[in-house]
Design a protein around this nucleic acid. Sequence first.
RNA 1: CGGGGCGUGGCGCAGCUUGGUAGCGCGUCUGAUUUGGGAUCAGAAGGCCGCAGGUUCAAAUCCUGUCGCCCCGACCA
Length: 569
Amino acid sequence: MKSSEIFNPTLREVPSEAEIVSHQLLLRGGFIRKTSGGVYSYLPLAFRVLKKIMNIVREEMDRAGGQEVLMPIIQPAELWQESGRWVVYGDEMFRLKDRHNRSFALGPTHEEIITTIVKQDVHSYRDLPLLLYQIQNKYRDEIRPRFGLMRGREFIMKDLYSFDMDEAGLDLSYKKMHEAYKRIFERMNLKYRVVEADSGAIGGNESHEFMVLASSGEAQIVYCDNCHYAANVEKAQCQAQEAVKAKSIVVKALEKIHTPGVRTVDDVMQKLAVPIESIAKTLIYWADGEYVGAVIRGDRELNEIKFKNILRCNELVIADEKQIREVLGISVGSLGPIGAKFKVYADQEIEFMDNFICGANEDGYHLINVNMSRDFVPETIADLRNAVKGDSCPVCSAELDTIRGIEVGHIFKLGTKYSEVMKASFLDNNGQEKPFIMGCYGIGVSRTMAAAVEQNHDENGIIWPIPIAPYQVIIVPVNTKKTEQMELAWSLYHQLLGLGLEVIIDDRDERAGVKFKDADLTGIPLRITIGPKALQEDKVELKKRWEKETVLVAIENIVEEINRILKQY
RNA sequence: CGGGGCGUGGCGCAGCUUGGUAGCGCGUCUGAUUUGGGAUCAGAAGGCCGCAGGUUCAAAUCCUGUCGCCCCGACCA
């Protein structure tokens, strides 16, 4: 393709709306344009990248036994009412009505449709397992779309749904997908990590996320280098701190002290000159109609997902100051577990804290020398906090580390969650009617493109991993007016095309600097520069986008050299 | 939905407080000179200042409403 003909409008300046690197570079490189909030058009270069990602995904899904289908984006409300998600999904779902006033949704996901299709036409265990997948636009009316392609309202997603006759079958399907996903991200040449995840609203009991590692990632990953444990911080288990217990000292008598004006953990530290580890804080939440308190060490973060799972509640929101004052008659700074008018849930770490400090449930007072069991008995003791760097690994007890990642894949065991409510069943080999055992496995295709940029870029632009680069090679003749440069450029261009490679020739009558800047910005992995200096020695320059240095290669070897490099991918 | 900010040529912005013929840089077009990391000179095109009302002799500027966008929060792949 000639640069002069590619529709690839690059920008010198960063559009002000773009906050993160991938958004900025995809806009500047002429890959995407915004059509509406959270809705983007993919220009030719971006579409080439997407197609490469989709092809890799498709090949691996097929290899794992998947069959591709295409399902409607417009979905009738009835299907969603049947599963109960018409209500549950809430404002997140794009809804519309036709001229007859019938309700529809723009599909955020396709469990309802696929389950309906399978229910209609699959009736025997002989037809199982069945793995069906689709790669399509999906829709979520995000409260706040942001980060460009990272959190759009329209996005491209691959979803595979598995139908099995029993748990063992599901385990096998799940394992196949797990392996397929690893292959996919390896083939795309992305650094990633598989982590244990919370299955959230979709349900089910086992779930893994595939995270592309990038410092800008939204997800915090906790991992162990000693063993293979890795988990989303939402899920990562914390160990109770036995070591602390061993050092325990004499339990002192409970004491109430006057602490006017002390409101935060920091205040307590300063006022009483104590370490933050000797303070316990109490957080009040509104959980399905009642107030509950969580007690954790002063420096810890409450993990709301763990808390929610322990409470088995649907709604969990932190109470605001006004609510606390109205209901409990005290201010936030003086909350504590002793004599509380709410149910108290303690983090397991609290059990190992001796003579700690907490609010007295009385304005302007704190208690010191508090000890759990002796001074109060919580409803439950559980793992309630977020894991942090330095915690011990729940598998091997080595020290955990943390890293940030972008969630690009998520696999779930659904079980019978949908098949039961939607009455999708088959007859097993005993003639018994059984609900399908389902799994669902998603990959955010458009998000993967953005994640690849987040992970692979420098100050000059994108550095596409070769397997998903829009083109593999760009030939840059330094001066278009010099016929010997142009002749060689065209000759190399045709030779590379002849090998089936994807090549751009920058035939624009621009200054070399402009061409270099554009080539770097758009991230084409290999650049051949044809200039007078090297040409005198019958050489051209080869620049790998991911390396700093340029190397000289003899003209007669360059095609072979390019082919050799690209063959590795 | 709550809090904050912004809508002025394709992009980035100034002008608004104190109303009076809309400006800068980049990009685009023409020509010339250039040609190894976003050239120089000369010329040109392109904007009913988001939209709708209102105040005024006069509105980008003041007032009201509305739409859109961005950031923080709740939500989430």
